[in-house]
Simulated scan of single mutants.
Amino acid sequence: MTLTTLVTHVEPGEAASLDATLAMPFALTEAWSAHLTTLVFTTDTLAAADEAQAAAHVREAAERRGVSCEIRSRSSFAHGIGEVLVDHLRVADLGVLALRGGAGVGHRMMLGAAIFESGRPVLLAPHGGMPAAEFGRVVVAWDASAAAVRAIHGALPFIRRAAETLVVTVTEEKDFRPDQSGVEVTRLLARHGAKARFVAVPRDGGSVSEALYAAARGAEADLLVMGAQRHSPLHNMVFGSATRELLSGGPSLPTLVAA
């Protein structure tokens, strides 16, 4: 399994911001000798944005690095920004999107559409973070959900290349049958050629996402893999949601999600 086609989105803006957004997509495109489709349009209808200028900057940056990159605009205003991104993701292997804390409503809605409506895994990268061409250590969040299963399979290209994969279950969350356990997941990944092991971590009164990111930091992970759950507003208000916290606060390390 390999990656051949990646999709990213660039918010028009200053050159430094454009370069920060492109850092991870360019690094992965180079590492996998892949093709990158870059969508250039604004997610804030009230903000003045020079999309043509931004597209020119992306084109020049790709040419300098020798990255195979095609640039697409929104092209049609009959569809929402989320629909435009989803259409491109459905004919790609992976979405690679920069996410910063405090992103606007339009940007978060676009990300939600990408995650929940495209059927493809999406890699969320911290905006401006130092990109890694390879993810040497991967942490997989396992809760026996369908979303976690899809996230793991979407991350297999990275897991197979990793020096180590840690399958993590946050305890005090759910009761698992023996065949749903993270131990069985590590055996599956081993059959795919991964170097995997399992560990259970306590929630300790915090949120699930806090426990996961603490485990990832403790393991010095380069990539976190997790399923994304869409909950009702009431569920989010009462119980919290790791997905909601991720989208609102931004990831502290590259995080691959699937729904």
Rank of each mutant, 00 (worst) to 15 (best):
M1T: 09
L3C: 04
V7N: 05
T8A: 07
H9E: 03
H9I: 01
V10N: 03
E14P: 13
T21I: 14
P25S: 07
P25A: 06
A27G: 10
S33T: 11
A34N: 09
L36Q: 08
L36C: 11
T37Q: 05
T45H: 10
L46R: 15
A47I: 12
A49G: 14
A49Y: 14
D50Y: 14
D50I: 15
E51K: 12
A54R: 12
R59V: 04
E60V: 06
A61T: 05
E70F: 00
I71T: 11
R72F: 04
R74W: 03
A78D: 13
H79P: 01
I81H: 02
G82E: 01
G82F: 05
D87C: 02
D87M: 04
H88T: 00
A92N: 07
G95T: 08
G104R: 12
G106H: 10
M109V: 09
A113T: 07
E117I: 00
S118T: 02
L123W: 04
A125G: 00
A132P: 00
E134C: 00
E134N: 00
R137K: 08
W142A: 08
D143C: 06
D143H: 07
A144Y: 09
A144E: 08
A151W: 09
H153A: 13
F158L: 06
I159N: 02
R160E: 09
T165R: 02
T171A: 09
E172N: 12
K174Y: 04
K174W: 01
D175W: 00
G182T: 02
L189I: 01
L189M: 04
A194V: 05
A194K: 07
K195P: 04
F198C: 10
V199Y: 03
V199G: 07
V201S: 10
G206E: 10
R217T: 03
E220N: 13
A221C: 08
D222W: 06
L224A: 05
R230M: 10
R230A: 15
S232N: 12
S232D: 13
P233I: 08
L234A: 12
H235G: 04
N236P: 03
N236R: 15
M237H: 14
M237N: 09
V238I: 15
G240H: 13
L246A: 15
L246Y: 15
S248K: 15
G250F: 14
A258T: 10
A258I: 06
